[in-house]
Amino acid sequence: MKPVRLLGMILAGALLSFGQVRAEGFPSKPIRLVVPFAPGGSTDIIARAIAEPLTKILGQSVIVENKAGGGGSIGALEVVRGSKDGHVIGMATVSTTASNPAINKKIGYDPIKDFQAITNIAATPNVIAVTANFPAKDYKSFIDLIKRNPGKYSYSSSGTGGIGHLQTELFKSLTGAFLVHIPYRGAGPALVDTVAGQVPMIFDNLPSALPFIKDGRLVPIVVASSKRLAVLPNVPTFAEVGLAPVNRMAYYGLLGPAGMSKEAIDKIHAGVQKVLQDPAVRKRIEDTGSLIVGNTPDQFAAEIKAEYEIYKDVVAKQNLNLN
């Protein structure tokens, strides 16, 4: 065999081998990013903010799929049952990985054992807000009023087991206040009825409540945030009023099924870190009222575990159930 021909065969074999390695590596096909809620909410907005730039970095399409229902559990189960090669990942929220599993024993997954944390993309402050005609307009008068009138006032939430429900129950357990829970089928309807005065207060994500606060239809009382917010400079944090355990921000992160390949974890994590350095992406996320995080898989796993333990304790202490 001629040397030139032999060299050509060797090179062709090497290129074929290299191609096979690339084809077998991650990602080898489009990645499904499951959002466990309907389009348009904060979770969906943040997912779509990272999907397109992450597509460019990973070299495969990152396709957002909305799988709403069951307080986020339907979408979460989609991830749990997904392939472990990293081509099915999902958005993680406090509702899907902590508060809902804490109260719903039949949810179908364990938020600690059945998922692989990748990163917390962003965190969002929550706020207790009251209607414009509520008798109290600041925290001191608010807490005095509700404690003097146990059971007189109610609060709305996105539903039993959601973050708004259990975060309010945590607040109640620490203050001794008695507020009546009015669950809705989603945060949107709960907010609409609160703004309309059907329910006097809500514990909601700031991005949803802020437009109504700005136009005077809701009054902010106290926020769950690491520090006072520039948009609400006169509103104290829960830590400031002596309720540090309630000072818990909502997270919006990425996770995959337990046993997910390390290659996929590392590549997605590295890709998200690059995405979060893009000023346009940062602005899009920060415009929702969220703060950029972008931590490690271990750090995010610790966050999820901490939230789950907190809300399991709330459920036990407050004797909460789905009925």
Rank of each mutant, 00 (worst) to 15 (best):
L7N: 05
G271P: 07
A301Q: 06
K227W: 05
A129Q: 14
P111C: 00
K172F: 00
R5K: 15
D313E: 15
R185F: 13
G216W: 08
F212D: 01
D215H: 07
K274W: 04
I310C: 14
L322N: 10
T131C: 03
L11P: 05
I146W: 04
A209W: 01
P257C: 03
F203C: 11
D85T: 10
S225P: 06
G71E: 11
I112A: 01
N120W: 03
L206I: 08
S158T: 05
Q116F: 02
K147S: 14
F300W: 01
M1W: 13
S290H: 05
Q273M: 13
V127N: 06
V195T: 09
I103L: 13
G19W: 03
Y109H: 10
I292A: 06
S157R: 10
T131G: 09
T168K: 13
G188H: 11
L16Y: 12
V195C: 07
N104A: 14
G82R: 01
A117I: 04
G188S: 14
K137A: 09
A239L: 07
K147W: 06
M249L: 11
I107T: 06
G289C: 06
A23S: 10
V180Y: 04
V192I: 15
D193Q: 14
G70E: 06
P207Y: 06
G242N: 06
Q167A: 12
P150S: 08
V235L: 02
V223L: 03
R284D: 08
A23N: 12
A306C: 09
L218R: 00
A302R: 07
Y155Q: 03
G13Q: 05
D215S: 10
V314L: 07
G69W: 08
F203W: 13
I128V: 14
G256L: 08
V4R: 14
S83Q: 14
V88S: 02
I46A: 07
N205K: 07
K214R: 14
L276K: 02
Q20A: 15
